[in-house]
Design a protein around this nucleic acid. Sequence first.
DNA 1: GTCCATC
DNA 2: GATGGACAACGCTCA
DNA 3: TGAGCG
Length: 830
Amino acid sequence: MSLKEYKEKRDFHKTKEPAGKAIKHKGAKMFVVQKHHASHLHYDFRLELDGVLKSWAVPKGPSLNPKDKRLAVEVEDHPIDYATFEGEIPKGEYGGGHVIVWDKGEWIPPKNVDEQLKKGHLEFELHGEKLGGAWLLLRTRIPGAKKNNWLLIKRDDENASAKDITKEDKSVLSGVSMEELEAEMENPRPVKKTAKKSALKIKPQKKTKFLTFKDLKGPELAMLSETPPVGEEWIHEIKYDGYRTLCFKNKKETKLLTRSGLDWSNKYLEIQKECAEIAAESIIFDGEIVWLDEKGRSRFEGLQNSLEAHDSSELVYYVFDLLYLNGFDTRNLPLKDRKKLLREVLEQSDSEKILFSEHWDESGKSVFESACESHLEGIVSKNGESHYHSGRNKNWIKIKCTNIQEFIIGGYTMQENNISLGALLMGAYNKKGKLQYIGKVGTGFDAKTSKSLVSKLKKIKSKESPFDEKSPASKASIWVNPILVGNIEFGAWTGDKILRHAAFKGLREDKKAKEVYLEEVKIKKESVKEITKESKSEEVKLSHPDKIIYPGDKITKQDLSNYYTSINKWILPLVKDRPLALLRCPNGEGKECFFQKHIETDDMGILGKKVESKLKNKKEEIVYIDSQMGLQELVQLGTLEIHSRGCRVDEIDYPNQIVFDFDPDEGVKFEKVKEAAFALKEILERLKLKSFIKVSGGKGLHVHVPIAPKYDWEQIKSFSKSICDQMEREHPEKFTTNMSKSKRKGKIFLDYLRNGYGASAIVPYSVRAREHAPVALPITWAEAKKLKNANSYTLKSVPKLLNNRKDPWAGYNKLSQKIKILDQYKSLSA
DNA sequence: GTCCATC
DNA sequence: GATGGACAACGCTCA
DNA sequence: TGAGCG
């Protein structure tokens, strides 16, 4: 989409003038609100109408980028456009201009929304375009709320609500069927996911105009890995050693382009001719042009020789992807389907030079091994379900048998005779964008290539070293502009990131030096699982060790990491192998946080597991840890609170601990909370159950009861409910089991709901995301007697306290208590 | 913090 | 490259 | 039935 089209689409309500009418609202004020994002700072707007804070000003409007300083607001009598500010835009108020709002486009707020808005706690998005402008579809979200709400408002009736839409109204919903709309309101989902789900089936639905290389934004590229990925979704292809080439054919012309978009049709005349003859009106291929040796292996040297001789007769084009066919953009098809289509097309054409790149869907490991045995360069494993995405991503993974990589020539030395080339000084761009020296290459070129190299290098001589640092400064070094790219085969990397046993294999004329960077080896988790079991000592890198995550006490991420390291042996037995729920606050305590129960990581310490609840009849993906490393990785992810379920990952239907949470209302004396805990202790003792107590790190206390995993969640929940009910009956003035705030005045809320399927509670020894980093610390009942409050054990004080401490929860994990009354009930009902 | 999508 | 969104889930209770 | 609450 061009910028113009994008703007038109975004500003549809300005250009289309739909049922409602745009008016200028005189009393409007704009507020610029600074918002922190994990990786960047940006701004949002709020709009005040007649003194009432109404909304974000511009639906999906542009944010203010401190660099471009635009603001989508009409200023004075200028036409609606972006106002451009000079200099820094301060946080604050922007009044005096006009802000465009709809006359009847205001939504009917649900209860409390006005208040939420005043606090700035509500955001909404306008989805009017979907409904042709006659209606407003708003997605509202209250941070922390469980779901989005969709509000549909008819413009000409202020009191219209979503329910009032009749079948007749369908006509104005331009393009949106009633069913779709109902489905959307019923089951709201983020807009972008909608787009994802509407993936084309094998037959593309809509004709699109022919794509250009620019539309494509370049070919899809593979990530480097040391081992092939594991999983049925992966298919595996031979990795070719040639030039990546895209073929664009339409009625007018047939072009062969390099990966950077250069037209090399003339260099591959024979192939270009054959492509032109393909029996399709328009087509885009992605593949590799190679030269094959007598054994059918692609050899880069052969390709180079052919090109230098301007003879493409010996080259073939292995096509492995189809991006466009006869008017249809096929990039959104799953790879498997694209290759099916591609195979059909190529079978029809019967060309000897344009070949279908076969794939195998057996285990990646065996494909990789046989590829290496046949002295091929390696394999490329691709996710068969993935769409075609430009750029490097994890859907394509390359695994190499030998180490051949492209690097940049940053300089060279001559042999002593000063006639022939001594060594090439190689480099690659690192993450910082600097050219990093990676060693010299003094072999692999014969007299002829040496000569041609020298003549090429002389032309690009430069006075200064192009290398960042660590550069091989010596009198003999001759620097060059770092624009030539060479193919280098090497044995291994040294610890200092220098090549060992490197040999020159030829220049890569299709690659720009800017594209050559140090590739990080991305290893898929599945393929290294066996390794991780043995190499648990691996350390976890903290991305920002000095980042302050508890601003009140200047506690850094490193401090948190150190905390868990020092109390590792205390927390691990209580947290390992339990399904987790994490409270993550990447920007620290007091900043925006979110809960998370499912994570995909490539990290090795955070484990995922597919579990199935037989009793709940549902499958889910859970996260757990079983090592110190896992704990460290949680820290790295910005986890401030670790919560767990009361069960083990392999028995999710049967909890092995019960948790009672005593949560006092504002103003309740802590003594009372202690009394409650001790009252519970007594009840439990009467039931012959041993219990353990911990401070919550907040205001309350938690009592844990380890049990045998033989009762299901329903049993445990009703058991704990009955106990809490009993306490409430005995002392209704002290306790309540009712969570509602109004009925909690001056009482302690007995929360038995931690004991339900999927519910979780704070893990003992976890820190809390509150000021001073309090810890949910296990204590003895004797200590509880003297306790003054529940939040004075902190990240700073706990490690010292634990020194030489006798485990207050000794035997917790070994205790497998039975609950008699449940057993009795069971035998009764049986 | 990380991934991803959209521009 | 800049920007922005998602990242849980479920039962209870009250209006 | 939806919102608020853990």
